[in-house]
Design a protein around this nucleic acid. Structure first.
Lengths: 191, 191
DNA sequence: GTCTATATGTCGATAGAC
DNA sequence: GTCTATCGACATATAGAC
């Protein structure tokens, strides 16, 4: 991996673990195993490096989610697969985490990838839900946009509860809870 | 307000806005309008002051939630009132926010009030849901513990989405979405 | 391109005057 | 109790050698 890529990788890890405010250039350099000069050669500074890291993380998250959404199966099956896919629950969401960083939220360029990721996620999930509704799989009264926002919120909130408890249980419960309610929206029994 | 109380108040505000890592003693003192000596007289340091602030914030959150849970009305009405009560959505949850702070999560004493708050919230909501189920108001198949975790997760995740979008809309959608699904659990039509 | 040396400010805490 | 002075360490960036 090139020095530039190594710097981006280390920054992504540290942003996930400690956030923007809690991540120093020094810590990035130590983890990447390069000197200070390399960083200021490839990037103009901490902000510029974080921008590259955040964009990369957002791209990857979207690509991974799209895999679940375009898989085979009913709308409910795909959403269930998305919610239940393997996740590092106690580490939380590398994108959602950034919303708690005041310096990231205050900077339009740093916030943009975060905003776009959740906007995309909500619309993508709403499309899957609408598909299910139009196919007669889901209750006609179900509101796709609202339900999609709720599904994304359950994931993000599930991470919060899991971290607070130092346990994945609340996350699993929240996911099971939403899947239970969604199953009631199925016009044909899911079993 | 006493100097000690003023310090706790300023710390609570800054922890909410900037988190533990992003809050310096200097910033607390400036906001409180006191000198450095006052802080180290009343508290042993940043951690000790944060501990007092976090405990106070957790207490207040529980007291405010309990108001909604013990109000009059059906289980669904009380949960709906809790979800739709006035909130500073874009500021997020002052307790949930702390779960993204690595130094808070790594310190058992600082994490305890956060853990206890969400644990209490989930159990308290589960009790209200169970009550509604046992009274025949809600579907007998509804799992109170899972549904309670889901409701808390929707709130916490709603904050994340709202902050990412710089708009309360995703939060409102998520709440509307969960209320829509919960209404389907009512054994008698809610209208 | 990558390194080390250096600069300037802030962090978190201590010392001691009043 | 509250203040200012001071401390060693670290944050972020620049300079300049190789």
């Amino acid at each position: 991996m090139s020095t530039r890529e190594q710097l981006i990788t280390s920054t992504r890890e540290l942003l996930w673990e400690r956030g923007y405010v809690g991540t120093s250039p020094k810590a990035v350099l130590q983890r990447a195993g390069v000197g200070q000069g390399s960083m200021y050669h490839h990037f103009s500074g901490k902000r510029d490096l974080a921008l590259a890291a955040i964009r990369r993380t957002a791209e990857e998250l979207r690509a991974k989610a799209e895999e679940q959404f375009t898989a085979t199966g009913t709308a409910l099956e795909r959403i269930s697969a998305y919610l239940q896919r393997e996740r590092d629950v106690l580490k939380g969401c590398p994108v959602g985490r950034l919303t708690q960083d005041p310096d990231v939220m205050a900077d339009p360029a740093l916030r943009a990838p975060v905003d776009e990721t959740f906007d995309w996620l909500r619309h993508r999930l709403a499309a899957v839900l609408k598909e299910g509704r139009d196919d007669g799989e889901l209750n006609a009264a179900m509101n796709p946009a609202e339900t999609a926002s709720m599904v994304v919120a359950v994931l993000q909130g599930g991470y919060v509860l899991a971290r607070a408890a130092h346990s994945t249980e609340p996350f699993q419960h929240a996911v099971a809870g939403v899947l239970g309610l969604l199953a009631c929206q199925a016009t044909t029994p899911s079993q």
